[in-house]
Amino acid sequence: MILFKRADKKLFLMLFALMLFAILPELLMPLYKATAKIGQDLVYSRAPILSLLVEHIWLTLFSSGLSAIFGIMLGVLVTTKAGEDFKQVVTMFGSIGQTLPPVAVLAIAAGFVGYGTKPTLIALFLYGLFPIIAGTIAGLNAVGRDIILAAEGMGMTESQIFLKVKLPLAAEVIIAGVRTSVVINIGTATIGAAIGAGGLGAPIMAGLINDNFPFIIQGGVAVGLLAVFTDRLISLFEMRIRAYRT
């Protein structure tokens, strides 16, 4: 809790709004009534928003968690002496990967694995990998040569240098990569509804297909709040690290 002190108010407000909306999507009823066509359902009924939200969070957390573990490991590996030869390829992979359209990655994954949660998780995992790899390499590369030299000069071992010097200094950039990855994954997971992954994309998709605007609002508001909240949460974390460092 020490990590989040000042800007928390907004953060908690967002969290509160998100939870409130997820539990009670009827809050925006006047808006639904104003935008719905005659005879349409006003509230998405196939699943409560709250359970969709939980599903969405689970999808993102699971895939991004895996991406973070593998991405950071890969990024760290290629910045060590043993992995130096692969650095260029992996860096290039990271930067090309970031240019890939998420929809295309998702679609190809669906093409191979079929429909449902599995291809979505695979696509999210793969797609989330790129910004994390790029961030990890960039962060570790940015640690000044002099700092490492100074650490070596003090008699630190390779692993000590890594744990006590490199990693803390690179943490900010690495976490920025994780943030990009998570936020993109929240968005991509929404599109995942098109291949039956569920989550908050489901009402949006249903709304788009059936021309039902209230459904779009319910899914959109929830996923929008989730994304903005997550982005803020992680960037607060980034800021703390920066403040702690300087």
Partner: peptide, 10 residues
């Protein structure tokens, strides 16, 4: 930050 599909929908 808002997912693209939601923004389109909005």
């Amino acid at each position: 930050t808002i997912p693209s599909i939601a923004l389109f929908g909005f």
